[in-house]
Design a protein around this nucleic acid. Structure first.
Length: 651
DNA sequence: TTTCTTGGCGCG
DNA sequence: AAAGCGCGCCAAGAAA
């Protein structure tokens, strides 16, 4: 079965897999569409079907093939073996493969057939979804609307980079949608065949530089992400549970305090609700049925205000206690901004509520999902999506490693080795400086100072040196830091007002306007360059970012707010991935056992397995590679710097 | 009953 | 005319 003959001309075949929920006690067990997303996770799913299609050409005798690999649903225990043999034979003939979002297929296949993992990465040569995502010539919105309107009710919506959208639009094949039962030869083969056709189409129609960015950069980075997902991290479950117990105690105490502080509000709320029930039932014609139903409704009236409900809290704080819950933007809200202001005005109940919210957030949004997502060995496998953000940044889910609170990071550990992690220092400031060559900004970078210090002197009209700010005006600096880089991206005076006020310096809008002026005067060059970028993008232009990713704003009206930010954000993100990828390559070239395990926008985390000497060497290699790039400017260049080091846990 | 939207908030 | 940008997850409430 394994071909030994001479290699034929290189060719591309397509693969596609379907998966189903394999969690026995999940209501969606066995289904392709699982509301709990089990079918999307290799640690909770089974592969039901694999489709393989190669082009029918001179050297091909290959028919489209379908494999049913797993015993659970089909009883075909030889499926994986047959798939492997076919795959191997194709690669021997000179084949490499394409897929639509191949990260999904490669991840699942690698997890189920570990000995194929390296081979899958080696022979994955094209990805139609990545290509379509990067391609600046998008499917027009009118087509997307038409497509959404004609979608059968039960099907999932097809996104702009979905095969279901791209194949009909670009290849002019009949429209098709996702089906409930994907465990079907025709369905899989249609997807696989269209993927192959789409691959050909995109190779022919995409600009060469855009295609090259995917092939040379984005695809290799994406392969690194597959490795990170497969490896994952280990949860310190005992530590996490202990911490949860602590938090639960705190939460209960805070809630008890609030219940007392607000007992009159709870009573009032209950009586209002009851009153409404009575009113509703007075209108009911059928007087015989009325009473029993009224009693049921009354018994269901909540006895207290729910602290989880923004609407109810708005009633409690705004209506009942008469607090001014208008945000600085002018609209009513129970968000942090308002609460911090009220607390600083001496409202102790609000201060307690703020603490409760913070505790509640960690207790509900993070800890339970981490415990639910862990695999049998306490492993968690954050899944990255290189197409998840318009800017080219990664998004991340199940769990989202990008939003783990600082306090929980220490419960994430590398599987076996040490975690060597580094942040890119001030990458956003450096990129703005490199792009705009603003003298003031270049100065800040060259002197190793922070933009926040300069902002502080500008905002508060201080006459000290920026470097003296942390020493002399720490509180002002903290407030200024709240503004961050927003002003480079067209934030206004009101944003300054909110940020500085939140930082403990209540200021008027006029104060903020003066601060804004000071800022604009300080960085005129940067801002005028940003303006040029915006003008180009507003005209529908394409600008390559620092790594060659083509940047285009689909809706030109958005270019004013998004344009410059997109250029900077995408560059920062791409630099981080590029450096991390390079670090990994350098480690492996030295024979060091290393795994990519974390990436968070400007942070790269690599697990290294080995003795102390090995880890020290790895640390040197990593910090060298992560900074092994300079941002060129006309007269000099800006070097990268990183903060971090070796640790047993994240952080 | 399920699905979608909103407000809120964690992170960069 | 005025506007920081980019995500995912949770609970409540509305819509279906």
């Amino acid at each position: 079965m394994i071909a030994n003959g001479p290699r034929s001309a290189p060719f591309v075949f397509a693969i596609d897999i379907e998966t189903a929920c394999a969690v026995k006690d999940c209501p969606h067990y066995g289904k392709a569409m699982c509301a709990n997303d089990h079918s999307l996770s290799p640690w909770h799913s089974e592969i039901t079907v694999i489709g393989v299609v190669r082009e029918q050409d001179a050297y091909a005798s290959g028919q489209p093939k379908v494999y049913r690999p797993e015993q659970v649903f089909r009883g075909d225990s030889d499926g994986f073996r047959h798939f492997y043999q076919h795959f191997y034979a194709l690669t021997q003939l000179g084949g490499s493969f394409t897929a639509h979002n191949g990260k999904f297929d490669v991840l699942h296949l690698s997890q189920k057939i570990p000995h194929m993992a390296q081979m899958l990465l080696n022979f994955w040569s094209s990805d139609t979804a990545l290509n379509a995502f990067v391609w600046t010539d998008k499917v027009p919105p009118e087509y997307l609307d038409w497509y959404a309107d004609n979608k059968p009710k039960e099907s999932r919506k097809a996104g702009p980079h979905s095969l279901k959208t791209l194949a009909p639009y670009l290849l002019k094949v009949p429209a098709f949608w996702e089906v409930e039962d994907k465990d079907d030869d025709e369905y899989v083969l249609k997807d696989t065949r269209y993927t192959l056709q789409l691959h050909k189409y995109l190779e022919q129609h995409m600009p060469a530089d855009q295609l090259a960015f995917v092939t040379e950069k984005l695809l290799p980075w994406t392969k690194m992400l597959v490795e990170a997902e497969l490896r994952g991290l280990k949860l310190d479950v005992a530590g996490l549970l202990a911490y949860r117990a602590e938090l639960e105690k705190t939460e209960a105490e805070l809630k008890a305090q609030l219940d007392v502080l607000w007992s009159d509000a709870h009573l009032a709320y209950q009586s209002i609700m009851m009153h409404e029930v009575h009113k509703r039932y007075e209108l009911m014609k059928d007087t015989k049925a009325r009473e029993p139903r009224r009693q049921v409704a009354l018994s269901r009236v909540p006895t207290s205000v729910s602290y989880d409900s923004p609407a109810q809290m708005s009633w409690l704080l705004g209506t009942f206690y008469g607090y001014d819950i208008r945000s600085l933007e002018g609209d009513e809200s129970t968000g942090k901004e308002v609460l911090i202001r009220l607390a600083s005005e001496g409202k102790d109940d609000v201060a307690t509520f703020l603490k409760w919210r913070k505790t509640q957030k960690v207790l509900t949004a993070f800890i339970p999902s981490l415990l639910a997502l862990k695999d049998a060995k306490d492993g968690v496998h954050p899944i990255y999506n290189p197409m998840g953000a318009r800017t080219g940044r990664l998004s991340c889910e199940r769990p989202n490693a990008q939003q783990v609170p600082k306090e929980l990071k220490k419960f994430f550990k590398p599987l076996k080795g040490k975690l060597i992690g580094y942040d890119q220092a001030a990458i956003e400031a450096k990129l703005i400086a490199a792009y705009t060559e603003d003298p003031a900004l270049l100065d800040v970078i060259a002197s190793g100072d922070s933009i926040h210090n300069v902002n502080t002197t500008a905002f508060f009209a201080l006459d000290c040196q920026p470097s003296e700010v942390p020493e002399l005006y720490p509180r002002q600096r903290k407030a200024s830091k709240n503004v961050g880089f927003a002003l480079f991206y067209h934030a206004g005076a009101n944003r300054i007002r909110v940020a500085i006020t939140q930082g403990g310096f209540p200021i008027s809008l006029n104060d903020a306007k003066r601060m804004h002026k000071n800022f604009l005067a300080k960085f005129t060059t940067a801002l005028s360059y940003a303006k040029e970028v915006v003008a180009e993008l507003e005209g529908g232009g394409v600008i390559p970012n620092l790594l060659g990713r083509p940047i285009k704003i689909q809706n030109p009206q958005d270019a004013y707010m998004q344009g410059f930010n997109t250029l900077i954000q995408s560059s920062a993100s791409d630099i981080n991935l590029d450096r991390m990828h390079s670090a990994l390559g350098a480690l492996r070239a030295k024979g060091i056992e290393a795994y990519p395990i974390l990436t968070v926008h400007d942070y790269a985390g690599i697990e290294v397995v080995g003795d102390d000497v090995c880890v020290r060497l790895a640390d040197a290699v990593i910090s060298k590679e992560l900074t092994n790039m300079s941002l060129p400017t006309t007269n000099s260049c800006i070097t990268l710097e990183v903060d971090g080091g070796v640790s047993d846990v994240w952080n």
